[in-house]
Design a protein around this nucleic acid. Structure first.
Length: 525
RNA sequence: GGCGGAGUAGCUCAGUGGUAGAGCAGGGGACUCAUAAGCCCUUGGUCGGUGGUUCAAAUCCGCCCUCCGCUACCA
């Protein structure tokens, strides 16, 4: 919306052994299994009005090419070598981490398949020379203090690096059903591609997360369209969950450097939404919030607002249905929704719907009345802080800044009491008439600015706000098109344009806490 | 165990030496444009415990208690 070229990528990581095994357990192909799951993700994205430029799947053919090219580059650079990997091996799931297995009277077992004895297996694998990048990683962290955010995550990762980096394996000889991207290099160092174009299964597959990380550059055009890639890479921002921080902040930059590519500019690590008591949400615990139910109750815009406002973006947060309903009613229905509604209603009632221009700072309107409120100066301060918070990924603070203006505007209504001014106007008081127009002009402008500024959070609500105010909204559902938003976000940017407000229409119907419980029937917490 | 963070009003949190704060929730009031919303006022806290430093400590130091994060191949 600022007018910058953007490319927004989401997608799915599909080559895990767990996926291959679950598909086998259900008696169907891994491909059919992931196709179904991807459908669920896309439905949820649509429901939440998340509009990536591309939804990338690691099973996409261009991603297969990208992953194989990255392996070739690492190999050409001398960063991968053949070694042996050993550990507990579950015939159903492949290698299990020592922390995932249990010692029992009958031997070592994996909790998912207690009937099947584990084997201590040795496998020939390719290893990536992560150890060669320790110094460069430390230097990178020092020279780019914002590379990993929030700061405490950066410190954790830096501590991990300083503790010494080991090489890690990036291939697997065997996976259930051979699931994975074919490893493009044979053990003798030549290509594993055969004359008929298929890949030699003896070469194994690329280990799942080595392949998964590469999705970011596939999405930027690597290696099929290096022109596009040069335009989009390095990415300005990776947003990831805390559980995969190490992969994105340590392994991934090293992989890129090995291939002669740049690291992303910034990686933001977000926390989790936790259920009551700080428990992790899971279906088996029955404390899972289905995003589709969420949208049903609050609307796509409401759901987006709540999740981003209620939670400090860098930390875990305990959330509950009740906390969301409270926040929805307080912020959206009562504060902002009602502000717009009362402002539009008064404009209709007292000015026959005609929209007066907002009085600018230091100016007098045509009737000689100076600004009646300090909303204009408040706005310019808030906008600056709003931008700072957004750029720092402090999304909850960013929204709080905007709501400071909402609060100020509600106070202005009570301080000026337009209904009293309107009575005086009826009695022929011309000064009151000018003041009434000034008050409503300032309130309408505050509504326009907040409604537009909040568009990245509530892309569906923003056009409805502007429509009620009689303004056009020229941006698409994905935020593209339209004028540079910072121009539009100036106080009085459309001050000279005559216009009419439309009939007031509540944006966020107030919810009854007792009624608005989870559709799944789970007891609200 | 090691490293790091947190413990402040019912809830979520701000506050790094000088008379305890915000939002929400609760209570009261005046008003009426509005989604019984908004506005004003207000109840509520020995700032985890303890011992120090200081004229003065939520804030600095020591010890203790509780919780959380990181501590490499599930991803």
């Amino acid at each position: 919306m600022k007018g910058d070229d953007t490319r927004f990528l989401t997608g799915t990581d599909e080559h895990s052994i767990n996926i291959a095994q679950s598909a086998l357990d259900e008696g169907r192909s891994a491909r059919a299994f992931v196709d179904e799951k991807v459908g669920y993700f896309k439905v949820a994205e649509d429901a939440l009005a998340i509009s990536p430029d591309r939804f990338i799947r690691t099973t996409d053919p261009d991603h297969v090419r990208a992953a194989q090219e990255m392996v070739r580059r690492a190999h050409a650079n001398g960063d991968i070598y053949l070694g042996t990997y050993e550990g507990w091996y579950c015939p159903n799931e492949g290698f299990r981490n020592a922390t995932d297995v249990q010692e029992t009277a009958r031997g070592t077992i994996c909790p998912n398949h207690p009937e099947v004895p584990l084997q201590w297996l040795t496998e020939k694998n390719w290893f990536f020379r992560l150890s060669a990048y320790q110094e460069r990683l430390e230097r990178h962290y020092e020279e780019h203090p914002d590379f990993v955010q929030p700061d405490y995550r950066r410190n954790e990762m830096l501590g991990f690096i300083r503790g010494g980096l080991e090489d890690f394996s990036i291939s697997r000889e065997r996976t259930p059903g051979g699931w994975g991207i074919p490893f493009p290099i044979a053990s003798n160092g030549s290509s594993s591609r055969r004359e008929d174009g298929t890949w030699d299964p003896e070469a194994g597959v690329i280990y799942v997360w080595y392949d998964a990380l590469i999705n970011y550059i596939t999405g930027a055009g690597f290696p099929d369209d290096m022109g596009a890639f040069a335009h989009w890479w390095p990415a300005d921002l990776h947003v990831i969950g805390k559980d995969i921080a190490r992969f994105h902040t340590i392994f991934w930059p090293a992989m890129l450097w090995s291939a002669g590519l740049e690291a992303p500019r910034r990686v933001w690590v977000h926390g989790w939404l936790l259920a009551a008591g700080g428990e992790r949400m899971s279906k088996s615990r029955g404390n899972f919030l289905d995003p589709n139910d969420f949208v049903t109750a609050f609307g796509a815009d409401g759901a987006r607002y709540l999740v981003l406002r209620e939670v400090p973006f860098g930390r875990d947060a305990e959330v509950s249905w009740e906390s969301f309903v409270r926040r929805y009613n307080a912020d959206l229905a009562n504060d902002f929704g009602n502000l717009l509604n009362r402002t539009v209603s008064m404009t209709n009632r007292y000015l026959e719907g005609e929209r007066p221009a907002p009085t600018a700072e230091g100016q007098r309107d045509d009737a000689g009345v100076p600004p009646v409120s300090d909303l204009a100066s408040t706005w310019s301060r808030v906008l600056e802080r709003y931008r700072e918070r957004l750029e720092g990924c402090a999304l909850d603070d960013a929204l709080a800044e905007l709501w400071g203006v909402v609060g100020a505007a509600n106070k202005v209504v009570d301080a000026e009491q337009p209904w009293v001014l309107a009575k005086a106007v009826k009695d022929g008081d011309e000064i009151a008439a000018a003041r009434l127009r000034a008050v409503l002009g300032e309130l309408l402008e505050a509504c326009r600015l907040v409604g537009l500024a909040v568009a990245p959070f509530m892309p569906g609500v923003a056009p409805r706000v502007l429509a009620q105010l009689g303004y056009a909204f020229d941006y698409g559902a994905d935020g593209n098109g339209g004028p540079p938003i910072l121009e539009e976000l100036r106080w009085g940017a459309h001050g000279g344009e005559p216009g009419r407000v439309s009939a007031p229409e509540p944006l966020f119907p107030r919810l009854d806490l007792e009624v608005a419980t989870e559709p799944g029937g789970t007891t609200p917490t």
